[in-house]
């Protein structure tokens, strides 16, 4: 599904050049469950941002389902993110003034889904995650675990083939973290491709494939874990 070749990403900090990604090549198959681990500054988040087209490499090639993405226009990259990627963030990134319903409506609005079809889809998504009763609650009226579940529902509502999660349990207590982990794994069980960036070794080891990064390079890449 995904083929990264010789991806480089450099930042300039003052006079210094930081190689956030240094000739990274990586293939990800459809339905894989992949964790990316590494120390701070190892390049794992940069890699995730590249996969989600939030950031663009300085050089290299990125093919998704056979299509080269390096040459996409700004507009086409936005469309790609909307249709192909679901993002999950450590800090949830829910819009505080919108209810759970309103937050879930955003992707549907951006996709141009007619209002008449939105209610049913949002209601079903929230019910599936056990948040049916919380539909009209603002984020501040929800627990951390509930907020992350709303964020996952938002990432899933357009049923994208690829889910990218950046420290999805980083802001949660262990119980809520476990819940969220189980939820993500159930999505993988349904055939979704899942890429998780994490510091948490326990979470990372659950993935069917683990990548460890160091200084912008892939240190090792191995199959394993509980699945």
């Amino acid at each position: 599904m995904i083929a990264l070749r010789e991806i480089c990403r450099e930042y300039h900090v003052g006079d210094e050049t930081v190689h956030a990604l240094d000739h990274v090549s990586l293939d990800i198959d459809r339905g894989e469950y992949l964790s990316i681990m590494g120390a701070s500054g190892s390049g794992k988040s940069t890699l995730l941002n590249m996969l989600g087209l939030l950031d663009m490499p300085n050089s290299g090639s990125y093919r998704f389902e056979g299509r080269e993405l390096m040459t996409l226009s700004e507009e086409a990259r936005a469309t790609f993110r909307r249709e192909k990627i679901g993002f999950i963030f450590q800090s949830f990134h829910l819009i505080p003034r919108l209810s759970a319903y309103g937050n879930l409506e955003l992707p549907l609005m951006l996709q141009g889904v007619p209002p008449s079809q939105r209610r049913e889809r949002i209601t079903r998504a929230l019910h599936d995650l056990g948040l049916g009763e919380r539909m009209d609650h603002l984020p501040k009226e929800l627990s951390g675990g509930q907020q992350q579940r709303v964020a996952i529902a938002r990432a899933m509502i357009l049923e994208p083939p690829l889910l990218l999660a950046d420290e999805p349990t980083g802001n949660l207590d262990s119980r809520s973290g476990d819940e969220v982990t189980r939820l993500l794994e159930s999505l993988h069980d349904r055939g979704m491709t899942l890429v998780i960036v994490t510091h948490d070794a326990d979470l990372g080891k659950r993935a069917t494939r683990q990548i460890r990064m160091h200084d912008g390079q892939i240190l090792h890449d191995r199959d394993g874990g509980a699945g």
């Binding site: 936005a78 790609f80 249709e83 993002f87 990134h93 955003l106 951006l110």
Partner: peptide, 16 residues
């Protein structure tokens, strides 16, 4: 800013 970033991640174009 983070709201704008989120909209971009959700697929909003610069025009939107």
């Amino acid at each position: 800013r983070s709201e704008i970033g989120l909209l971009m991640a959700l697929g909003a174009s610069t025009r939107e």
